[in-house]
């Protein structure tokens, strides 16, 4: 493929091959493939999009169009820990907007971005199905509920401490 840097694990592309193989002849399967590709690589870098374009015979411009249309897809490499702030109705009225502001302020990055040390990313979503715990932030797969902005520094500090040990 076009990327020759060897930075990406061959094994990951082998996984992607399997996904493409499954969906190859299915019409309208591009979004599924991109979704799974993002699951494999954590994000959708240029070379992964070009790889899918070639293997599925879909124009790269179309793939890039889909990737930039849906907020779910990202071209930024995710950090080791992704804070996902729920902006669904229940969380939002309970103040998740404030949580997001605080998080951006503390980490010094915006939504969809990753800290320079590759440790933290911020994402938003619409409802994780835990409205009873609103407002909710997930860190990777772990749900944190009933948060107030003042809880944010502690959550970050906790991860940093764990990483140092």
């Amino acid at each position: 493929m076009a990327c020759t840097c060897g930075g990406h694990n061959e094994a990951l592309f082998a996984q992607l091959d399997k996904v493409i193989e499954q969906h190859k002849d299915q019409k309208g399967s591009l979004i599924s493939v991109l979704h799974k590709a993002q699951g494999i690589f954590g994000y959708l870098p240029e070379e992964v999009q070009a790889y899918i374009a070639e293997k599925m015979d879909v124009p790269l411009s179309e793939i890039y169009g889909v990737v930039t249309f849906y907020a779910l897809f990202t071209m930024n490499k995710k950090g080791k820990y992704t804070f996902n702030v729920c902006l669904g109705t229940a969380c939002y009225v309970k103040g998740s907007g404030k949580l997001l502001e605080k998080l951006q302020e503390e980490l010094g990055i915006g939504v969809g971005e990753t800290t320079e040390d590759g440790m933290f990313s911020i994402e938003c979503c619409r409802c994780v199905g835990a409205c009873g715990l609103a407002p909710v932030v997930t860190i990777n797969d772990k749900v944190h509920g009933h948060l107030v902005p003042e809880d944010i520094p502690a959550l970050i500090a906790e991860i940093k401490a764990a990483e140092q040990n």
């Binding site: 411009s61 179309e62 890039y64 169009g65």
Partner: peptide, 29 residues
């Protein structure tokens, strides 16, 4: 432009990018 680049020329370099007010028709990346 996207249609002529795709269907007539088959070169496919132009496409719709992004959404809403920030959308644009242009080349990938």
């Amino acid at each position: 432009c996207e249609a002529v680049c795709k269907n007539v020329q088959g070169v496919n370099i132009l496409g719709g990018i992004g959404r809403g007010f920030n959308s644009i028709v242009g080349p990938a990346f």
